[in-house]
């Protein structure tokens, strides 16, 4: 019960912080809009395969940028303060929850903007929706953990990219498989891939929760 309370409290703090520093959120939203517009200018006509590729590129890059700030925006003194107040498990769970929500909003915005300029070729909305939801969650788990690591080093921004992208790929591969199916670029059932993706998400979540206390102690 105590843990749930701590998580809720920390989540509330995240939202407050985001509301106070509006530039961070609006910055990342602007990033998505600008990318979509650049792609629109560069590629005039788009086949389903290209659409799928570009959409996920936008989402992945926006996610890395969006999550990168989770541990650097608060200075180390304040983190020490939290360390004394709450358990590290509450910290990582609240950050993951917050980032999951952030990435879902980001992907939703990316989808809306992208299909405004380039008509969406999605045939099976439900499958695509599942891919976005589970993908966003997986990205949030992985990138939150990686940003916790990267924030400890002096060259955090570079580390975020080189540590983040390779560990994102197992999730991305499964997500792309479902998404390709939703765009009728491939046939057959994706139930196996969806289960696999859920399993990957849960596995990485368990790992992040188990390993974060050691990072936090630093």
């Amino acid at each position: 019960m105590n843990l749930v309370k701590e998580i809720l409290f920390l989540l509330q703090k995240e939202f407050l912080l985001e509301w106070k520093q509006k530039y961070a959120l609006s910055g990342i939203l602007l990033y998505v809009c600008a990318t979509v517009f650049i792609i629109y200018l560069a590629a005039l006509e788009m086949e389903a395969g290209v659409w799928n590729t570009l959409f996920w590129i936008i989402v992945v890059f926006a996610s890395v940028n969006g999550v990168a700030k989770s541990f650097v925006q608060e200075n180390s003194n304040r983190q020490l303060y939290y360390y004394q107040l709450v358990s590290p498990v509450a910290v990582i769970i609240s950050k993951i929850l917050y980032n999951t929500l952030l990435l879902w909003i980001l992907s939703g915005l990316a989808y809306g903007m992208f299909s405004l300029f380039n008509p969406s070729p999605v045939e099976y909305g439900d499958k695509f929706f599942i891919a976005v939801l589970l993908g966003g969650m997986g990205f949030a788990i992985t990138l939150t953990f990686v940003s916790a690591i990267a924030s400890k080093a002096s060259n955090g921004a570079t580390l975020m990219a080189i540590l983040g992208f390779p560990v994102l790929l197992p999730i991305l591969i499964a997500v792309l498989k479902i998404s390709r199916n939703a765009l009728v670029l491939s046939m057959g059932s994706v139930a196996g891939s969806i289960n696999m993706l859920i399993a990957i998400d849960l596995l990485l979540l368990a790992l992040a929760i188990a390993l974060f206390p050691y990072l936090w102690r630093e």
């Binding site: 953990f145 690591i149 400890k152 990485l204 790992l207 390993l211 974060f212 990072l215 630093e218």
Partner: peptide
Amino acid sequence: ISAPYSIF
């Protein structure tokens, strides 16, 4: 820092 990353 690197031990948790290597397990992940």
